[in-house]
């Protein structure tokens, strides 16, 4: 059982100690990682993914339940504990969605692979705007469909206690639903994002600068209010997007009705 992971700060790009010397993340928490391009967001995620022990350029060390990862479990077990989805990832296997999910479930020696595969597909379809069929080939899925399937698969088949998401905002999936779903499973979710809604949805956010953890901030009640407002205007945007997609035109009456 993972109750928490900790990042012990290392060095930024200039070799100076990181401003945040210690970052604890508890199970069930969503932590956002924000910062400009090149500020080291992906590197922080990569350090967690490989349970860094001072050997990466940042020299960070990752603890599990306050213990060095290497002492907490052996390599093979550790590997299954963090799963990552990033916007660079694509499916490359030439297989149907169903066969692939079965194969993945079997490779993890999970029972009732077929049923699990169906659950993944249902979950993915809740995240994706475009429906995914079980007989669809993996390689013809759109970017949004692929990412939805990856998130669902990571949540249910990889079932890693630590989920790392790198800039999924452009993926065309229902990000908020994806996140809430993951957090409900009591996972640790670390999410690199440029999206203000996702950053505010998180319980805390760490700001990266020049390769180092620069600032750690707990989302305030005011920020949660702002999130409500953003969600509202987002719903408006979604509504009009759909209207225009379906061929509606906007006249005075429609404007009033809305």
């Amino acid at each position: 059982m993972i109750d928490s992971i900790s990042v012990i700060g290392g060095k930024d790009k200039d070799g100076a100690a990181e401003a945040i010397p210690l970052l604890d993340i508890r199970a069930g928490e969503i932590l956002a990682v924000v910062g400009t391009t090149g500020s080291g967001k992906s590197m922080l995620i990569a350090d967690i993914e490989q349970w860094a022990d001072g050997e990466t350029p940042s020299q960070r060390r990752i603890l599990i339940n306050q213990m060095p990862a290497g002492e907490f479990a052996d390599d093979r077990v550790l590997r299954g504990m963090a799963a990552e989805v990033s916007q660079n990832m694509n499916f490359v296997m030439d297989m149907s969605v169903k066969d692939f999910l079965n194969l993945h479930a079997c490779s993890r020696h999970l029972e009732q692979a077929e049923m699990l595969a169906e659950q993944v597909l249902n979950y993915a379809n809740r995240l994706s705007g475009e429906p995914i069929g079980s007989q669809d080939k993996l390689t013809v899925l759109s970017g949004g469909q692929s990412r939805a399937l990856m998130v669902a698969d990571v949540a249910l088949i990889s079932d890693a206690p630590v989920v790392l998401l790198d800039e999924l905002e452009n993926a065309g999936i229902d990000r908020l639903a994806a996140l809430k779903g993951l957090a409900l499973q009591n996972k640790i979710v670390v999410l690199v994002t440029h999206d203000p809604m996702l950053a505010l949805l998180a319980d805390r956010r760490v700001v990266m600068k020049n390769g180092g953890m620069f600032k750690l901030h707990s989302t305030t009640p005011e920020e949660k209010l702002l999130l409500k407002k953003l969600e509202q205007s987002n719903r408006q945007i979604s509504f009009w997007r759909e209207q225009l997609r379906l061929g509606f035109t906007v006249n005075e009456e429609a404007l009033k009705q809305y």
């Binding site: 590997r79 993890r108 088949i157």
Partner: peptide
């Protein structure tokens, strides 16, 4: 591993 899915990485490694 940076360009394929988590699932494919796991199956490949196995």
């Amino acid at each position: 591993g940076d360009v394929v899915s988590q699932a494919e990485r796991e199956v490949f490694r196995q």
